[in-house]
Amino acid sequence: MTLFVSPAQGADSQDPEFGGAWKPDTLQVGGWIWDGVANDFVRQAPGATNLDPNLYNPELQCHLGGGEFDSVCLGDFLDCRNGPDGKDGYPVVWYSKPRGVPSAVWARHSGPTCLYDEKPVDVLARIAAQIQQQFESLPINAGAVVAQPSPNTLRGAETNFYADASEQQFDVTMLGQKVHVVATPVQYTWNYGDGTVFGPQPSMGGPLPQDRWGEKTRTSHAYADTGDFQVVLTSSFQGTYSVNNGPPLPIPGQGQFSAPPAPISVWRSITRNYADDCNQNPQGQGCPGVASPR
């Protein structure tokens, strides 16, 4: 996969492309992960969810260790007074290191940003412990279900289903810290209501132009029986969270969110051929005012 980075504003059309920094693509097929059992690096399984390749650690801004502070740096101390709960906070600088290199050293990543707690490092650990539960309780919209055709479809015909789930962002307060969550849909499970479940799989499907309705798609379904069914889409979201504008950290587990059930009626179609039209035979089946046979 190739990512194209759009040129910065003010870029000249004569400029060669930017984006020349050294970067073996983390989205490449088969990045490497450390396998502790094999005691070796192994290719990541295709379709595996990408972890954040970095570990993060906050340090008090200007802290030199052992209670010593850099007096010059303190002149630029970030003002973290009056946080979300009216509490005063602490400015921290974020460090990162690649998780796959055991002896890697911490390198400055970003900041300073504010943490609002007496023990800033502890509060992060506590947020980390709670973030999964918080994530699963967010009002994440699983995406609306659209059926083609709808609200009625025909028995035995391919009915195209698709969803329109999208990335969503939330701002919540956890332990007095501002936490920004970004949720991205990654997997979809279709329950077609007739006992058929498709997924979890990575496709949310897509619309078909009307002249192609009835074609088989990755997410279409053909009902074997007539009746009214409730179609339920469950979307799995992956998330990142950022504490007080700190670096985005991965939320370890996925969250499952279901869309409201979408009703669909499956009808049967019967073809009958007639010799006459309704002018010649006004009592014929299907003519105005004539009861349809069961």
């Binding site: 003010g10 930017f18 920094a21 073996p24 990162s96 796959g100 290199v101 890697a104």
Partner: peptide, 23 residues
């Protein structure tokens, strides 16, 4: 990286990326 044009103007400057793990 900063990308400098022949006239000395800076066309673009990359942000600092996190250290990477390469194999």
């Amino acid at each position: 990286l900063s990308y400098v044009r022949a006239d000395g103007t800076i066309a673009h400057t990359d942000a600092q990326a996190a250290d990477q793990g390469n194999l």
